[in-house]
């Protein structure tokens, strides 16, 4: 209101009354539930991965769920903990619009990665053989730092 001069003071006192402790704990509970849910999915997949007929499809679906839940968590942290949802729209836009670059960033680079893999698998038979060669299972925890050392 009277923040024509001295935004500092106005910003410091402006949202004094809108600070809601209940909302903070609610946000905390949401974040906690989402994380627990993610863990249940991850552990559930780990326990039952061999009983799925199409393992790869299930894993991809699960990863999609993880992405959505992660973005949900990010939204709650930025919006409530960092209070961005309660700032004015101009400010929100200067933060949110550049973040959209991530869509291109992630899409382009993951596409590039998988394209590299496919091309290499097609033209480099040696690489394919090498990367599918099974190695003997080592017991982690007894792994010595130098390769070849057996405990």
């Amino acid at each position: 209101m009277e923040n024509v001069h001295g935004t500092t003071v106005a910003a410091a006192h402006g949202d004094e009354h809108s600070f809601d402790v209940k909302l903070i704990w609610k946000t905390f509970r949401i974040l906690l539930y989402i994380t627990v849910f993610e863990l249940i999915l991850a552990i559930g997949y780990y326990k039952f991965e061999h009983s799925f007929s199409n393992q790869l499809l299930v894993k991809h679906l699960l990863n999609g769920v993880f992405i959505i839940l992660t973005l949900a968590k990010a939204f709650f942290i930025v919006a409530e903990f960092m209070h961005l949802r309660h700032e004015i729209k101009n400010l929100i836009m200067t933060i949110a619009v550049p973040a959209l670059l991530f869509l291109w960033f992630i899409g382009a680079f993951l596409w590039d990665g998988s394209s590299y893999k496919n091309l290499r698998n097609r033209y480099d038979r040696n690489h394919v053989e090498q990367s599918h060669q099974k190695v003997e299972k080592k017991e982690p925890g007894h792994e010595a730092e130098k390769p070849g050392t057996v405990e």
């Binding site: 680079f109 993951l110 590039d112 990665g113 893999k117 290499r120 394919v128 990367s131 599918h132």
Partner: peptide, 13 residues
């Protein structure tokens, strides 16, 4: 994180 993703997507295992 995206470079990690790129490398992971380009790996067979």
């Amino acid at each position: 994180l995206i470079s990690y993703g790129t490398i992971r997507f380009s790996s067979n295992g």
